[in-house]
C-alpha cells in the first residue's frame, strides 16, 4: 500500500486542499492517459479525468484510511468511462476504430533506439493503440490497467468488481489477440520493406 497516498488522503479528509492537489498532480497524467485509451479522444478524456477527481473529493469522507487509494481512483475513472461508452453505443458502430480522428502523439524515452527504430517503434505503438481501441471495453480496461498502470490481478479485480479468475482469462485473451495482430503487422511490414 502506498503510504504517501494514505498520508495525503488523511490530510485531504481533514480539509487540506494542498494535500488533495498533490494527489491530483500525482495521478493526473495516468488517469488522463487511461481515460484517453478507454474513450478514444482527448476532449472526453479530459472531462472524465476532471470528473474523476471531483468525485474523489466529494466522496473523501467515504474513503476509509487503510483502504488502498489507487484502485479506488481507477474504479471511479473506469465507471465514468464505461458510462460514457454506453451512452455512445447507439450512435457508434461497435467495430468503428476509436482513434480515427486523432493523430497519435507518443512520447518516446530519450535514451531510446536510433531514429529509424524509433520511427518503427512509434508506428508500432500507433498501430497497437488502434488495435487496443478495437477491443471490447471490458477487455480494453483490463489490458490497460495491467500494462502501463501497474495494477495487480487483485487490484484490477477490485476495480472492475469481477473475480480474479475472470481477470486472468481476459488478460490472456486480450494479450494473445494483440500479440497476433503485432506479429501479423510485423510480417506485413517486413514484406513491404523487402
Amino acid at each position: 500500500m502506498d503510504l504517501v497516498d494514505q498520508k495525503l488522503m488523511q490530510k485531504a479528509k481533514r480539509g487540506d486542499q494542498a494535500a488533495f492537489a498533490e494527489l491530483v498532480d500525482k495521478y493526473g497524467d495516468k488517469i488522463y492517459a487511461y481515460l484517453y485509451r478507454m474513450v478514444g479522444n482527448r476532449e472526453d478524456a479530459l472531462d472524465l479525468a476532471q470528473e474523476t477527481f471531483l468525485r474523489i473529493y466529494s466522496n473523501l469522507q467515504n474513503f476509509k484510511l487503510g483502504q488502498p487509494f489507487k484502485p479506488w481512483l481507477y474504479r471511479i475513472a473506469t465507471n465514468l468511462a464505461i458510462d460514457l461508452l454506453r451512452e455512445r453505443q447507439p450512435v457508434i458502430a461497435l467495430d468503428a476504430p476509436l482513434f480515427a480522428d486523432e493523430p497519435l502523439r507518443l512520447e518516446l524515452a530519450e535514451q531510446g533506439p536510433g531514429p529509424a527504430e524509433q520511427h518503427e517503434q512509434a508506428e508500432l505503438a500507433a498501430y497497437l493503440a488502434q488495435k487496443v481501441a478495437e477491443l471490447p471495453a471490458n477487455y480494453r480496461s483490463v489490458i490497460l490497467l495491467r500494462h502501463g498502470h501497474d495494477l495487480s490481478y487483485q487490484e484490477i479485480a477490485e476495480i472492475l468488481q469481477v473475480p480474479v479468475s475472470t481477470i486472468k482469462t481476459r488478460l490472456f485473451r486480450a494479450r494473445e489477440a494483440l500479440r497476433l495482430k503485432l506479429v501479423e503487422e510485423r510480417s506485413l511490414w517486413e514484406a513491404e520493406c523487402k
Binding site: G28, D29, H149
Partner: peptide, 10 residues
C-alpha cells in the same frame, strides 16, 4: 508498446 500507450500527459 502497451506501456508506451500510458505515456500521455494531461
Amino acid at each position: 508498446a502497451l506501456e508506451q500507450l500510458a505515456d500521455v500527459s494531461v
